[in-house]
């Protein structure tokens, strides 16, 4: 059985298992663009150069989903939102089971920046990591120059009572250049103490 929910909704977003809801050509339209190249400057995901890249990515995504090693969801704004029903980006939850840790990752198309979607997504994934997957820690990081990401992470980490853990120097390599990674985490205890509410409706099958 699958450990990850195939679909869920938050206040303004719908999430669906990426490889079940997007085909390679649809994904390539968004990840093979100059816009994605700009977006990917600060994340460890490269622009796709042809639809085969997109197919490989989806197949890898399906395999890791089945193994419980990584969940990638496509995000769609819900009805009433600008661009409702359109693909807006990808949210990831990567359990490191032997470390009882969930790593979070996300990217959003530029059109959807500045709406607080990243924070809304984080709240849902934090809740899934602790309540469903029974993990102990949720962790996230950003590279040195990625200010928008820093702001988004600081905001939700603070909301959940988490911590800035420190700097991992020369930790990720982007475009052949080693970059420093700032890392944050929220423990199960901090999450329980924060007692914040999460607007989350999980579906066990994909309609």
């Amino acid at each position: 059985m699958d450990l990850f929910p195939p679909a869920f909704e938050t206040e303004r977003l719908r999430f669906e298992r990426l490889d079940a809801t997007m085909d390679a050509f649809e994904l390539y339209e968004h990840m093979g663009t100059d816009e994605f190249e700009r977006l990917s400057e600060h994340i460890s995901k490269d622009r796709q150069h042809h639809p085969k890249d997109s197919l490989d990515y989806l197949e890898e995504s399906a395999e890791k989903w089945g193994e419980g090693d990584r969940a990638n969801w496509a995000m769609f704004p819900k009805e009433g939102q600008d661009g409702s029903g359109e693909f807006a980006g990808v949210a990831s939850l990567i359990p490191l089971w032997d470390r009882r840790t969930a790593r979070l990752g996300v990217w959003l198309l530029e059109e959807y920046h500045g709406r607080g979607y990243a924070g809304e997504r984080a709240d849902a994934l934090v809740s899934l990591a602790f309540e469903r997957l029974d993990l102990e820690l949720v962790a996230a990081g950003h590279t040195d120059a990625n200010d928008p990401s820093r702001k988004a992470i600081e905001k939700y980490v603070e909301r959940w009572g988490g911590q800035y853990e420190g700097l991992l120097r020369n930790w990720v390599v982007l475009d052949d250049e080693p970059r420093d990674l700032h890392r944050y985490s929220i423990s199960r205890e901090e999450y329980d103490d924060a007692d914040a509410t999460v607007d989350l409706a999980v579906e066990e099958s994909l309609e």
């Binding site: 470390r99 009882r100 840790t101 102990e136 853990e165 985490s185």
Partner: peptide, 26 residues
């Protein structure tokens, strides 16, 4: 550089992972 929680798996993942304090010299 910091203290990183749940960083090192213990007993192949069967026990509580360790936290790690890390340092660097450039």
């Amino acid at each position: 550089d910091g203290f990183f929680r749940n960083w090192v798996p213990r007993d192949g993942g069967d026990s509580e992972p360790w936290g790690l304090r890390s340092y660097t010299i450039t």
